[in-house]
Amino acid sequence: MPNLSIIDAGPGLTVQDLGRPGWKACGLSTGGAADRLALFEAAALLGTSADAAVIEMMGYGGNFRADDDTRFVVTGAEMAASLGGEAVLPNTVYVLPAGEMLTIRGAKKGVYGYLAVAGGIQTEPVMDSRATHLTAAIGRRLQGGDVLPIGADQSKVAPFTHLQTEDRFSGGVIRVMAGPQTDFFARATIEQFANTDFLRSQRGNRQGVRLSYEGDAFAVDGGLNLVSDLIVPGDIQIAGSGVPYILLAECQTIGGYPRIGSVIPEDLPRIAQATTGTHFRFRFIDIADADATAISDTVLLRRLSAACKPRIRDPHDIADLASYQLISGTTAGDDLEGV
């Protein structure tokens, strides 16, 4: 089996897939990629299954080398990446030739970038998943010197497929549905919540992100004596001091702080990918409208696959243009000016 070597790594690299559903009853949340959509985008681009394991990179990547040619793609956050002196564009398929170094630096937009290879990361599954779950002590952060087995790429020819994605890095209006505890809040508090401008605070990780806001703290009368109850990712928990947290993939399964509502799954990647200071507003929508946004993983992958397009390469992006034989024979040397 070929390997992917991590030459060096930022502090937030983990192996992720779609997580471990079904263990909530034992206190283990599903976990998996903080931005699930990015895994479907990678699968659509590479023609793989959406549950193939990838490397999640929080904020910063690292240097990577494979010992066999493999197609790869970087999805999720827009990472500054390069291969052989050429910039690697997000959501675009490339070949990583055996022995060459892929460099992925900081995120230019967003928080969580994903490096996916065509054969998937093939580490040993734990409870049917390869996802690292840090709070559950399953797996660990990756570091320089780690060597990960990867599946062989059957194709190794990059068609330079590209996927145009919608912006999910800029915050904006986030749709929220009522949850089991929405009625524990006074009508006025819910209105205050829907009329407040929020910022993504500095505090956030795979469990959840904290929001900050100006104005009166959200009232949680009796909220400190509530019976702890089941949580789903997307839930907006109001801690005792009135501070909202939005819970993400690696959230706790049960919590006692009341939850004013739940961000619908379709909008959750915009929460996960928000950097510090990103602005949000929340809009409550009906349960029926929220349900209507739920599409199956199969449909999502089919839609994204259909949206993948061959990329027209702009000659300005091609660093080694001079070595290409553009026309049979010679060129005048100036016929690319003004392209």
């Binding site: 005792g240 001091s241 706790q252 399964t253 702080y257």
Partner: peptide, 25 residues
């Protein structure tokens, strides 16, 4: 109940006067 974190037990019940609130911080 088991939850919040993997395998973590909620144990009950203490006498009624232990119905004390969570702390704010």
């Amino acid at each position: 109940a088991i939850g919040f974190a993997p395998g973590q037990p909620y144990l009950g019940m203490l006498p009624e006067h232990w119905n004390i609130a969570r702390q704010t911080e």
